[in-house]
Simulated scan of single mutants.
Amino acid sequence: MKTIFDKCKLGNLNLKSRIIRTGLWESQQCDLDAIYERYEKIASSGVGLITSELYSIYPKDKFSEHSFKMNNLNFMTMARKLAEITHSYDVPILGQVEFIKYNRGHDLDIAVNDLTMDDIRKIQSDIIEAAQKLQVAGFDGIQLSIGNNFYLSKFINPYYNQRNDNYGGNVFNRMRLVLELVKVMKDNLDLHISCKVNTFDERKDGFDSHESLEACKLLEKVGVDSIQVTRPLSPLYFTKKLSGEDELINYTKKLIDSVDVPVIVGGGFDDMNHMNDILNRTDIEFMSMYRPFVAKNDFLKDWKTNAESKSRCLKCNNCYRTKTSTCYHY
């Protein structure tokens, strides 16, 4: 019988449990000790893998105020310390590198269709440079989002991408920027590369589940080490009133049958017994959690000793809406 606390492997990474902590916003940039304390609690709790909060590669990006900027003079100091903390508990860590807007000098928010070839190469080189920084800092890998509503998810989405060159049209062409990028990183860096991919996009003529499966097969071919399933504005779908779990689970099962790389699913999970049930009635092996770690950084300790089996997170989404790494209620 599988449980969330099974020791397992995620590609080349050894995990102490099947739980992947996913980060989002960082509201404590000015208090490194608070960040270190939070990561120590998470790493010591029994988590299998930690994915960092968003790291911003562009200082004028939409969410740069709510994430740690990679050009910050303290970034490498902070990153090295986080790797040191997590590794002291034998927990690997991935750096989450994403952006919502691409800026060309004084021109802010360049649309996907207006990117020149120089812009495409600049985006690729900027992400590769970010990955190099993570490797130097001692991180085990990088998570690249081509999901949610970040820029690269728009690039691969036919709703946004109407380019008529080799980077537009069919799924392969729309994925070309990402595929080239991943190939270079796999050939030149010693990092676990994880990609976050949308199951589908709700917009008419947008990215659908068939295209998503095709995109994931292409990622596997260029050497991606794991895939995390998500959807646009995902925390809003997993509340007490609205749940998209069945849809997400069904897609994840199809993806697991379609690719030969580890697949991670996140869906507002907050109950250990429910999660163990999913593990044992499906082929799902890994689950990600975000808000429960905000509500209580080390809640997994209670789960592991069976003192509790449900997160105290109220799913109010205040942490998501206000872009904070701390909980409003606790």
Score class of each variant (00 low, 15 high):
M1P: 06
G11Y: 12
L15W: 05
R21M: 10
D31G: 01
D33S: 09
I42T: 09
A43F: 03
S44E: 14
S45R: 02
G48W: 04
L49F: 10
L49C: 09
S52A: 02
Y55S: 02
S56M: 02
S67Y: 01
S67Q: 03
N71K: 09
N72S: 15
M78K: 00
K81Q: 15
T86N: 15
S88W: 07
S88A: 12
Y89S: 04
Q96Y: 08
F99Q: 02
I100S: 13
Y102E: 01
R104S: 14
R104N: 14
A111P: 09
T116L: 07
D118Y: 08
I120D: 02
D126V: 03
I127C: 01
I127G: 04
I128V: 15
L134G: 00
V136Q: 12
Q143I: 01
S145P: 11
I146N: 02
N149L: 12
L152R: 04
L152K: 05
N161S: 12
Q162I: 09
R163T: 10
N170Q: 05
R176W: 03
R176N: 08
V178C: 12
V182S: 04
M185F: 04
K186R: 14
D187I: 08
D187K: 13
D187Q: 15
L189D: 05
L189F: 07
L189R: 07
H192R: 04
V197N: 00
F200Q: 12
R203S: 12
L213T: 12
K217D: 05
K221T: 09
K221Q: 14
V222Y: 06
V224R: 02
D225Q: 02
S226A: 15
S226Q: 06
I227C: 08
I227P: 03
Q228R: 04
V229M: 11
P232I: 08
P232E: 13
K241R: 09
T252G: 05
S258R: 09
S258Q: 10
D260H: 14
P262D: 08
V263M: 06
G268Y: 02
M272L: 14
N273E: 12
H274I: 09
H274K: 14
M275V: 14
M275D: 06
N276M: 11
I278Y: 12
I284G: 08
M289C: 13
R291Y: 10
A295S: 15
K296M: 06
D298M: 08
D298R: 07
K301G: 10
K304A: 13
A307Q: 13
R312G: 03
T322Y: 00
T326N: 10
C327K: 11
Y328V: 14
Y330H: 13
